[in-house]
Simulated scan of single mutants.
Amino acid sequence: MFKKIKRMLILLLVILAEAGPTAACSSSCPSSCDCNNIGLFSVPQDLPKTITNLNLRDNLIATLSQSDFFRYSSLTSLYLSNNVISVINSGTFNLETLTHLKIDSNELTSVRSDMFVGLVNLQYIDLGKNLIASLPANSFVGLKKLLYLGLDHNDIHSIEPGTFSATPQLRTLNLQSNRISAVPADVFVNMTELQNLYNNSTRSFLCSKHKPENFHINDTNNSPDNSPDNSPDN
């Protein structure tokens, strides 16, 4: 009898250990789930389907796949800062309601044209503090409603023509602390709403043609004060 009880207790401990991380963040649901800093290696799949805000900051997630957010189709805000994300597979963000996305402080080395497909209502994205080296054409295809794009503190040294052509509503572009020495002459084509550019190498942008009306270049080290962060409290 004692051995049977002991086996049951061990089994229960194993189950609790496996369910612990998601059980801890499930307590903050159903509309907003705070799964911050609980040692997750992947996106939990046992949270309420109706959640609108999901905080996955400060975990150990390395790869994002198509099935990760499939069940959370009502998300409006998603926070993935301070993980170790190096791979975002095509179709990961098929989230039509999402407006805010933070993937800063990760290990992304590139931006692909299929990386953000499905984010038709996204207004804010932060990709700062990654390892991105270049921005190819059509990097942000489909993000027609994007207002803020953060690419600061990367290793960007080149921007190809057409990089921002799919973001006509963009108002603020943060490129601080990169290695940009020159930009294509037509880099600002179709960016009629752009008002603020944060960049340490002002000279590389002054020669660009098609600069939008009321365009302002800020070459200080200060981050934008009016960034629509809306991040959850830590």
Rank of each mutant, 00 (worst) to 15 (best):
K3L: 12
I5C: 10
T22Q: 14
S26L: 14
P30N: 11
C33F: 03
D34S: 10
C35A: 11
N37V: 00
Q45E: 09
L47Q: 04
K49G: 03
T50I: 15
T50Q: 10
T52D: 02
L54F: 00
L56D: 11
L64Q: 15
S65I: 06
S65G: 09
S67K: 05
F70Q: 14
R71K: 14
Y72K: 00
L78V: 01
L80V: 08
L80A: 03
I85R: 02
T92A: 04
N94F: 12
K102A: 14
L108W: 11
L108S: 04
R112V: 04
S113T: 08
S113P: 00
V117W: 02
Y124F: 12
L127S: 08
L131H: 13
L131F: 10
L135R: 02
L151V: 10
D152F: 15
H153C: 03
N154L: 06
N154K: 07
I156C: 12
I156L: 04
T163D: 03
Q169P: 00
Q169S: 15
Q169D: 15
L170R: 04
L170I: 13
T172I: 05
N174H: 07
Q176K: 07
D186F: 06
N190H: 11
Q195N: 12
N196G: 07
N199S: 09
F215H: 03
S227F: 03
N230M: 11
N234Y: 10
